[in-house]
Design a protein around this nucleic acid. Structure first.
Lengths: 88, 88, 88, 88
DNA sequence: CTGCCATTTTACCGGC
DNA sequence: GCCGGTAAAATGGCAG
């Protein structure tokens, strides 16, 4: 066996370090992607504004639609909960 | 006039300090009140559970009702927005 | 005896339903109260800001004060914050 | 020419409406994409946690890395974090 | 004790 | 260029 205890430990530290680096780089890549998508959204709003639409109103519409969809999902969840509670 | 510049400055610092203390104490008092209300809510859930109700279901119902009310409010806000936009 | 089994059951269902409604309303009332207190807290922060205080620093002070069992390091941070806040 | 003024106006309204719908759908699509990327990030954090890494520390590291113009103090904090993370 | 959900804090974006 | 408000991230608390 060629490695002393310290060397083995160093290897483990190296491996852990490499894992950490890999995870962090993956996250940073994804965050960049997310930022780009956010940029694209901003561009669409800007385009809309350029075509005379009111951004504030658009945001309200989109928020409302999201809310309605969340509402529907909740209703389904509640129904499912009742279903389970009643052993149907 | 009895005060040197330094003394006046110290007075100002003292006043600012007293203001800060007062504001912080008000906030802490309100936060305590909020915590107490949160405790009361927990108690009601505990009571409900003791009477055989399913807490999870109750939470879902309450969340849904809040969502519905938020939805209604948003719809009104949207209407109001349109109203304003059209100069009615 | 005037009630059939089904009627009695329906009564029980009605009572349970009323209990549930009552519990939910109590919780909703308390949550509203809690929201109002939260609003009051926001108002105090707004007032503080209006008087030239830094809200972020105040939040930090309050958070640190909540940790009554603050270790030495936190005490130092608190001191440093006061120092900075008062421009000493 | 077959269209009255009102009809032409209705057409314009229809076109505006279609434009608005298109813009909103584009935004909603992009927001969904953004949400999916956010989900992927959460997954990576979960994986990291599963491999024994401390998520809070990782978040701090990533935040510090984002501040490319980190001053010396931050660099020291980063070093300290790595040191703690690797148990040196 | 783990995962989920609510709350709180931070960051961003539009408006003035 | 700043302010205010709104959405996202992060932390803390609670149920299971």
């Amino acid at each position: 066996m060629a490695e002393t205890a310290e060397t083995a430990e160093a290897q483990v530290g190296g491996i852990v370090s490499a894992q950490l680096r890999s995870l962090i780089e993956r996250i940073e890549r994804l965050e960049q992607e997310k930022a780009e998508t956010a940029g694209a959204i901003r561009d669409v709003y800007a385009e809309a504004k350029g075509n005379g639409f009111d951004v504030r109103t658009m945001r309200t519409i989109i928020r409302l639609r999201k809310l309605e969809s969340a509402d529907r999902q909740e209703q389904e969840a509640l129904l499912e909960l009742y279903r389970a509670a009643l052993g149907v």
